[in-house]
Amino acid sequence: MGKSIASRFDNIDIAKSTLRAVIINDDELTLEMDFCLEPAHPDYEDPGADEECCWHPGLLKFAGISKLQLDRRETAGDGMQRRFAIETFNIEGTKFDMACEWGDIHLQARSIRVLTE
């Protein structure tokens, strides 16, 4: 049996993690993330002197989307921003909700996968 979605976020500090990009393809949505790993995570390395976290790239992939609402925020200097801070993050069953500096994402999907690179 596979791991639950919640357990896939063990030892990842979602509140400090950031969104890098939103990619939409047909009935799929991919969120490129920089996950902030906690010391107990197997891929954890001591952060550099100028970083607060051990940043690790990853993806949230949603397939078989039946409901999708993207509310993009307009921000000053939006073209230069590379990381968007997460304000709220919730996965419950097939539903996903996230608010961040990029905007608000609400969806329902048949498949939700957490991938680390």
Results as ranks from 00 to 15, higher is better:
Phe35Met: 10
Asp43Phe: 00
Trp102His: 01
His106Glu: 08
Val22His: 03
Ser7Tyr: 15
Asp78Arg: 07
Leu31Cys: 10
Gly93Ile: 02
Phe96Tyr: 02
Leu59Cys: 09
Pro47Asp: 00
Leu19Trp: 05
Thr94Val: 09
Met98Pro: 01
Pro57Ser: 13
Thr88Tyr: 00
Gly79His: 07
Thr18Ser: 11
Lys67Phe: 06
Ser111Val: 06
Trp102Arg: 00
Asp71Ser: 14
Glu38His: 01
Met33His: 09
Asp34Glu: 12
Thr75Ala: 09
Ile65Glu: 07
Ile12Lys: 02
Ala76Cys: 09
Ile5Gln: 15
Glu32Gln: 13
Phe96Leu: 05
Leu37Tyr: 03
Phe35Cys: 07
Arg110Pro: 00
His106Leu: 12
Asn11Ser: 11
Gln108Val: 04
Thr30Ser: 10
Leu37Met: 10
Asp34His: 12
Gly2Trp: 14
Leu68Ile: 05
Asp34Ala: 11
Glu51Lys: 11
Asp78Asn: 08
Leu70Asn: 12
Asp10Thr: 10
Ser17Gly: 00
Asp50Gly: 00
Ile112Arg: 03
Ala63Val: 03
Trp102Ala: 02
Arg8Gln: 15
Pro42Tyr: 02
Lys95Asp: 14
Gly79Asp: 12
Ala63Ser: 11
Gly77Lys: 04
Asn90Ile: 04
Asp43Ile: 00
Leu70Gly: 10
Trp55Ala: 06
Cys54Lys: 07
Lys95Gln: 14
Phe96Trp: 02
Thr18Ala: 13
Arg72Tyr: 13
Val22Leu: 14
Glu38Pro: 01
Asp50Thr: 01
Ser4Asp: 15
Leu70Gln: 11
Leu115Gly: 10
Ile23Asp: 12
Ile91Gly: 09
Ala76Glu: 13
